[in-house]
């Protein structure tokens, strides 16, 4: 499981000097992310995106009412961005997930261009799906 906290992400990013170091760190985060297996990389789990492919799986809701997601991509940087997203969302309940604005976090990490630049990015669609799933579990 990913035990990283958002605060740790901020600290690490701040300590890194330039974009290349930050990208290296992001790529490493992506490499540490457990890949989804072939059975999970289904069309149903695929989040449609123009450039990169993203697959997202929601685990069953825990007894405590928290949600956990696992996701994967064919692009390294996107995997790193996914690792950040999962750090942000996993282990939270639906209401907290819905109240979280990932834009703030990515802005602080200097990664917000990845959120806004390509509206057809699979990663952006993944964020929407996480929120959609949280909303669904919240109202179900």
């Amino acid at each position: 499981m990913n035990k990283l906290t958002v605060e740790e992400l901020y600290d690490t990013f701040e300590a890194l000097d330039d974009w290349m170091e930050r990208y290296k760190y992001l790529i490493d985060l992506g490499r540490e992310l457990a890949p989804l297996n072939e059975l999970e990389r289904t069309e149903e789990n695929r989040v449609k995106g123009c450039i990169s492919q993203v697959w997202l799986v929601a685990d069953p809701i825990t007894e405590a009412g928290t949600l956990n997601f696992r996701a994967d991509s064919d692009a390294h940087l996107v995997k790193g961005l996914i690792a950040v997203a999962l750090t942000l969302f996993n282990g939270k309940n639906a209401a907290d997930i819905l109240a979280t604005d990932p834009g703030d976090v990515y802005g602080r990490l200097g990664l917000d261009q990845h959120l806004s630049v390509n509206r057809r990015n699979g990663f952006v669609s993944m964020m929407q799906r996480i929120k959609g799933l949280a909303h669904h579990s919240h109202t179900a």
Binding site: Y23, A75, V78
Partner: peptide
């Protein structure tokens, strides 16, 4: 072994 998305993002930087 390198996705075009990764290539484009790093070139953009």
């Amino acid at each position: 072994g390198i996705h075009p998305h990764d290539i484009g993002a790093v070139l953009d930087q």
